[in-house]
Nucleic acid binder design. Structure first.
Lengths: 248, 248
DNA sequence: TTATTGAACTTGTATTTACAAGTAATTTAA
DNA sequence: TTAAATTACTTGTAAATACAAGTTCAATAA
């Protein structure tokens, strides 16, 4: 009796992260890193139980999340089959262009290095008082897919507790990876507005297109695990070659 | 012992739908129908247990899904708070324009009544052999929001076991409600491609816009609970007045 | 009166147990 | 040899139990 208590305390000292979440993270990384590949059969729930030293409901909670996010499908009687990394989930239901396209074909040119600015509004999204007071980090980037300029995005982040942020290198790196790795900021969800516009002079220059060219515009507010810390971005896409793809 | 078994058998004769799903459906409909409104505190999990005569894990599974779909948020120590019907989830992560906009402001004009056609492809999505062989039901509609033409959509559905389908009335009604109600077909998920185009002659006429007007184009494949039965649709949106809105 | 404590709620996590139901391969009977 | 039945897996559902942890409010002590 006392032993169980004791072990629990020890475990929570180590992490305080719930078991089902840890199992989820492990399995997820095994899929993204290619340990499990598309079509593979995951170890059975009971096997996972013994490996991770938890019970079935805990394993199932981890698997539930993987199903929800599209990493696996489950079949009664057969097992859990890896669907792979939800590819196209990309820019519509995910957060960055990097995760949408994949790092290989994506090159990033910094149009405007991160700098600190004042703001009162972010792409039609209203700001909270703390957000306004802390100011924002402003950045402009052009993304090239296979050498062609496809995305032009403006990012605005509240300047709260982000030491050395403006001096980091964002070329060919995911902003969200950096936020996760160095600042423990994770994306929880968000909202977006989508519209079709005609390229203005600036966009015509970036995308190397003529007059009257249609461009897809995305305004988004991205919510994080840090309450009140939202990331705002405006993305313009030239969809001539690459349509935006998403699943739901 | 025997009694428990017995009750279970009876229950399953009645429905065969899992308890957590039934609770989910009830709570969901209570939110969509306005029994619970935005900001309301849902009955506590224990209260729901006694009301629905199930245990907490079952209730929690139902609530989990409501959280995932954005109907409620939960706060430890406080309770479950109703967020309302996920509005903007609309056209980007949901299925129809009706559910995106709401029935009130939406009027539908049938441009081309449902008719049976042959098909070999559906908006760049490849078709399976059974789908090709069964033919498709083809339909064109124009949707007006507050009197303005905003959506023009083409729908293609495999002609499998849909008796009296072509004679049904689709004006101001959700196609997906009809499929759910009369044919027990439910949407499971789907994929979509998004791009910005310039309005052609036909679209210029529908949307009453001039030359060079940008239009948002959506090609989507919608998967259902009936294996191999997919709905294909192509939606054109005039985003001048109404930007597409979505959450993730 | 004001700050603090504590009790009574709420949801969050986790285990244990049991059986239902689908799948696949093996064994058995024709 | 072939078809049917068995068995040994798999995931799906559900209950009963326990405690952790956050919230709220009323009772208590300063």
């Amino acid at each position: 009796m006392f032993n169980i208590q004791f072990n629990k305390v020890i475990r929570e000292q180590e992490t305080s992260i719930p078991q089902h979440r840890k199992v989820y993270e492990i399995l997820r990384s095994h899929i993204t890193d290619g340990v499990f590949r598309e079509g593979d059969l995951l170890p059975s729930e009971n096997e996972l139980c013994t490996v991770h030293k938890v019970t079935r409901p805990t394993i199932r909670k981890a698997l539930d999340r993987l199903v929800n996010e599209g990493y696996i499908v489950r079949h009664q009687g057969k097992g859990s089959i890896v669907k792979g990394v939800p590819k196209g989930v990309g820019i519509l239901s995910m957060t960055g262009t990097t995760s949408a396209i994949g790092q290989d074909n994506l090159k990033t040119t910094i149009i405007l290095k991160p700098e600190i600015r004042n703001w009162t509004e972010a792409f039609t999204f209203p700001l909270s008082q703390p957000e306004i007071e802390s100011g924002c980090i402003y950045m402009e980037r052009l993304r090239l897919v296979n050498g062609n300029p496809v995305f032009y995005d403006i990012t605005m982040i509240p300047n709260i507790n982000l030491s050395r942020f403006t001096s980091r290198n964002f070329e060919n790196k995911s902003l969200f990876d950096i936020l996760r790795k160095y600042y423990h900021i994770e994306v929880r969800g968000g909202e977006q507005k989508l519209l079709a516009i005609v390229a203005d002079e600036r966009l015509k220059g970036f995308f190397k297109v003529g007059s009257g060219h249609p461009v897809l515009q995305l305004n988004r507010k991205i919510e994080t695990n840090r309450p009140g810390f939202n990331i705002y971005s405006q993305v313009f896409c030239n969809t001539d070659e690459y349509a935006l793809y998403g699943t739901f």
